[in-house]
Design a protein around this nucleic acid. Sequence first.
DNA 1: GCGGGTAGTGGGGAATTGTGGGTAATTGTG
DNA 2: CACAATTACCCACAATTCCCCACTACCCGC
Lengths: 147, 147
Amino acid sequence: MAQAFTGVHNINMDAKGRLAFPARQRERLGPDSSSTLVATVNVSSPCLFIYPQSAWEQVLEKVQALPTMRPGVQNFQRLFVGYATEMEFDGNGRLLLPSSLREYAGLDKKLVLVGQINKFELWDETRWQDVRQQPVEIPEELQSIAL
Amino acid sequence: MAQAFTGVHNINMDAKGRLAFPARQRERLGPDSSSTLVATVNVSSPCLFIYPQSAWEQVLEKVQALPTMRPGVQNFQRLFVGYATEMEFDGNGRLLLPSSLREYAGLDKKLVLVGQINKFELWDETRWQDVRQQPVEIPEELQSIAL
DNA sequence: GCGGGTAGTGGGGAATTGTGGGTAATTGTG
DNA sequence: CACAATTACCCACAATTCCCCACTACCCGC
């Protein structure tokens, strides 16, 4: 893994659906500024995932390996793979989000970009606030590791 | 595999049953713009499959290899193979869908084209919304992998 | 505090893409 | 064989996208 993505950033989307990726995070994607990203939906939360191309390919392999005919799997693949869209930065370091993805995540003007190790999550600010204020229940898996 | 098809696109079908395939997706089908596609029905969902010719041939081989006398198999083959129709783009990059397929999938004016790796799914917009809004239950297999 | 540089924002306009018919060709039917 | 209906092809207009440039805001060093 190249470098883990972390950090929470407030960013704005303009009227054309373009969003300025924070410069610092852009550098982490690779010294070459012209890297390709893949955005798709998080099927279990109203937000988007944004992967660097290479990370996406790894995830896609895992997803393809799932038993397609199992109930639930097909639905998941349909959304997760279906919404996946390649994106590149424009000359000003901005990404153009497809309208279908904007709609899915209810993205308005004010967004929040959250680093998540191998990917980013992108939230509409209001929904992010909702999630942030909900109490975190500690799952069992967490109780067995030291932080 | 040449390139995985992904992305969700809203497209319109005109009064003549022609639908404008998004230019970007058309390019992925092959640099040669005059490629042949095969459309057929998805027997387990009210939508159509659209394959590039080469992918269709691979699928057809597998379908032919099925044990025809097994209950259900014949029914499946009858629909899946029976509805399959070759299509080509007109000069403007549009496809003309046979009315039998339009009818099967309940296609009206507003459609949704969904990339699914080796093929596309084509939905009527209202039915797509239904599917999308159903809660995705995360199958067991998925709970054990990291995305 | 001033200046230089980088980052973020906004918008204009060219090029591409999508849409709607009109007309010719072809097919099917009586 | 003639006619009607459908299909295929073509052209022109409308809409959208993309690319580029210019401006503002902010940060940093001097």
